[in-house]
Amino acid sequence: MTIQPFTIAISDAAISDLHQRLARTRWFCGVSDAGWSEGTDGETLRTLVEYWKNGFDWRAQEARLNTLPQFTATLGEQTVHFVHQKGSGPAPMPLVLTHGWPGSFIEMAAIIPLLADPASHGGDPRDAFDVVVPSLPGYGFSSVPKVKGTGPFEVAGLWARLMTALGYAQFGAQGGDWGASVSSWLAIRYPERVKGLHLNYLPGSYRPPLGADQPALSEAEKAFLDRTASWLDQEGAYNRIQATKPQSLAFGLNDSPVGLAAWILEKFQAWSDCHGELEQAISFDDLLTNISIYWFTETIGSSFRLYLESRQRPMQFQPGQRVLPPLGVAQFPAELPMPPRSWVERAYNVQRWTNLPAGGHFAALEQPQALAEEIRAFFRPLR
């Protein structure tokens, strides 16, 4: 395995090409009063694109991200980009944080210093972590898998190898969205190495043991299943296409920055705790930094593959199967449908469950302080 320092350096030509494409946008004109009801709101998208062209400073964001200690690790045919921030404290605990879709490692930019150096942010230095934030395969600056077969199960294997290479025999794992799936597979595959598992979302493929020999569904569990079915009917089209025919969509989004922005903007607006006004939860600078990474690295199509690959190995448990490491859950009010604790306890070893007052699907980006405090509290007795 080879580990090398990494610096983001997008060429001037790539930035110029982006601006030229934005200037040549052929706008779609929908019905005048659709708003967000039929997808991305046109007025909001035009405002975002205008800022992308004339206000957004990629170089400033690139410099900000390059203050993070970044590296690449070559693991066989896969190159993994990651941040490795050593902790400031008497005995920092290793912690691997995994992002999701349509995010990237920048989701964790604000929470990394809170976890690595808590004393500088009102916390206890004894809660410090050595923070590792990898970019998922096919996302951002990690390489694109060349063949089929890299799903959350396999990514967990890559992360375990990465943590070994960094000298960590045991570590904690945390994530939401795909990060929840990868972190859960880490706990399932390597229970002797994962000291604790903390999630702010439950993997969408998670199915606990059910049937005649299992406890009957509670009313809360039935309501969760109904709520999930309704959500998928109203909001799940992206999931179906990305899990079945992602390539057709990828051609268009890889060629059009406005198309790419529309696809990602819709999810950030719908899944964040923004009360209809995205900038109440996530700034345009953060959003466009994330979108720009997808654009410059041409990874929107490869990012879809986790949806397709995860169907080959869903996280379904048989009677008696359990996730052994302790689990902590931070539930944010604007999160996608979340199961009740009883549903999770059917297979996970739940030790902490906290309902937070504000925040949505992108918790590390929306509420970094609240999430960091929860992570510290959960792992404190596991050190």
Rank of each mutant, 00 (worst) to 15 (best):
E366W: 08
A377M: 02
L22E: 05
S104E: 03
S256I: 05
W343L: 02
H19W: 09
A347M: 01
A243H: 03
A358I: 04
F224S: 03
A180T: 11
T7S: 12
V131H: 00
Y294K: 02
S104Y: 06
Q351S: 14
S302I: 01
F141M: 06
Y168N: 10
E107A: 08
A73I: 00
G55Y: 06
F153A: 08
E235G: 05
S181A: 14
S120E: 11
G175D: 01
E277A: 10
S184D: 09
I188P: 05
D233Y: 08
P326G: 08
V155P: 01
P314R: 01
K245N: 12
S218H: 14
W36S: 09
I10V: 15
Q316Y: 07
L199S: 03
L22D: 04
D273F: 00
W231G: 03
R240M: 14
A237P: 04
V131W: 00
F129D: 03
E154T: 13
P208A: 14
A9Y: 07
Q318K: 15
L371S: 07
L356A: 11
S104K: 02
V329W: 08
E235L: 04
A262H: 11
C274K: 03
S143Q: 04
Q312F: 11
K267H: 05
F6A: 12
L97T: 04
E192Q: 13
L18A: 11
E107H: 07
Q4F: 10
P203F: 00
G276S: 12
I3G: 02
F332D: 08
K195H: 05
R305Q: 07
S218E: 15
V133H: 05
S184R: 06
G211H: 04
P5C: 08
L186M: 14
T25P: 01
P134R: 05
E154Q: 13
E266W: 00
E373N: 09
V323L: 13
R24K: 14
E374Q: 13
Y206R: 02
S230M: 09
A165R: 15
R26F: 07
Q280K: 15
N290A: 01
T2R: 13
L365C: 13
G301K: 00
A63C: 06
H121G: 13
V131Y: 00
A262W: 07
T72P: 02
Y206I: 07
V144I: 14
H275T: 13
E277L: 09
M338R: 12
I300V: 15
V182L: 10
S292L: 02
D226W: 09
D17W: 15
L217Y: 12
F296P: 00
P337Q: 05
K146M: 14
F129I: 01
V323N: 03
L136Y: 10
F224H: 11
C29N: 15
L65T: 03
G175I: 08
F6D: 03
D117I: 09
A23Y: 03
E107D: 12
W36G: 07
Q174R: 03
G172L: 07
Q234A: 15
S143Y: 03
G30H: 10
Q331E: 15
T7L: 07
I375E: 01
W27E: 13
F171Q: 03
E50V: 07
G167S: 14
A156L: 02
G55F: 04
L308Q: 11
A370M: 11
Y206K: 01
D286V: 10
P92D: 09
M338Y: 15
A281N: 05
Y348P: 06
S303F: 12
W185Q: 08
L382T: 01
L136S: 05
L232N: 09
Q369C: 07
M1V: 09
V132W: 00
P113V: 09
Y294W: 06
